[in-house]
Design a protein around this nucleic acid. Structure first.
Lengths: 135, 135
DNA sequence: CTATTATAGACTCACATTATCTCTAATAGG
DNA sequence: CCTATTAGAGATAATGTGAGTCTATAATAG
C-alpha cells in the first residue's frame, strides 16, 4: 500500500511548475534536471498530467510544459489520480458480496483520506515552500 | 496504492474467527475453506498474525488458531499492519529533505487514515455482520 | 506410536513498476 | 523553406514484489 515513484516525480514536478509559474514554458529536460530521473521517463509521466488536463504542453522549439488555466485549484489528489488511476485502495471484495462489512469500513476511511488529499492545493504548498527554502 | 490480497485473506479470517469465537480452536483448513485460498498460503499469512500477537496457535492434533486474550480490542489497523508491515504510504522523500512539504502533507492525511482504521474494531464489525447475514 | 496440525524454507510464476531507446510529429526562428 | 528543438508514442528490457505451491520439520492429542 504505497504510492509509486511516478507519482513522486509528478508531484515534485507540479510543485516546481507552480513555484516557477510566471516563467512560461519549461522543458522536460529542465524539469528532469531537478530530480534523478531521465527525460524520456519523466515525459511519459507528464503526458498523463496533460491528458488529465492538469498541465498544457507545447511541442517544438521553445516549447515545454506549463500549468493549466485555473492552476490554483489543482490538489494533491488530482495529481495522484492522474498518475495512479482511480481504482480504490481496497477492491478485493468485488467478487464477494458488495455488502461486505470489511469493504465498507475500509472504503469509508479511504473516502476521508482521498477527500483530505482533495483539499490540499499545490498552490498553497508552493506558498509554504517559498518560506522554507528547499525547492 | 492498494492493499494486498494477503491482507484481504487476513481480514476475512479475523472476522470469521471473531464471529465463531466461542467454538475454540479452528484449523487452517477450515479457515481456508471459507475463502478461495490454499491452506499452505493462508498458513503463512496467519503466522504473521501470530507473530503480531493477534491470534494464538496450537500445533498438533485438534490444534488450530484462536483469538488472543483481549480480542475485543483488535482493530482493522492491527491486522493490516501485521500483514503489510509498517512502511508508510509515501516514503520516497527520505533521500530528499525530510522537510519536504509534499511528504508532510501526504503523511498528515495518511496519519488520519490510519488513525481511523485504528478505531474500527473487528469485534464491532462482527456484531454488524451478525445482523446482515453473509458470513 | 500415529494421525493431525502449525511452521519454516526453497522455489516458481505472473504481473506491475521502472526505466531506456528509437522513431515520429509539431513548432519557433532564421 | 530548413533546421534545431521539443513533446509524444511505441517497443522492449530489467527489476522487484505479490501470489502461490511444494516439501520437510516440529509439536501435540489420543
Amino acid at each position: 500500500m504505497k504510492l509509486s515513484k511516478s507519482t513522486h516525480y509528478a508531484l515534485h514536478t507540479m510543485l516546481h511548475l507552480t513555484i516557477s509559474h510566471a516563467e512560461g514554458h519549461t522543458s522536460v529536460s529542465k524539469l528532469a534536471g531537478h530530480q534523478q530521473v531521465s527525460t524520456t521517463y519523466l515525459s511519459k509521466i507528464l503526458t498523463k498530467l496533460v491528458k488529465a488536463g492538469l498541465i498544457v504542453s507545447v511541442p517544438g522549439a521553445n516549447g515545454g510544459y506549463k500549468l493549466k488555466a485555473n492552476w490554483q485549484e489543482t490538489t494533491l489528489l488530482d495529481v495522484i489520480q492522474a498518475v495512479e488511476g482511480l481504482p480504490p485502495i481496497f477492491d478485493y471484495c468485488e467478487d464477494h458480496n458488495p455488502s461486505c462489512i470489511i469493504q465498507q469500513s475500509i472504503q469509508k476511511a479511504e473516502k476521508n483520506f482521498l477527500e483530505e488529499l482533495g483539499t490540499m492545493k499545490i498552490a498553497d504548498l508552493a506558498e509554504d515552500a517559498r518560506n522554507v527554502p528547499h525547492h
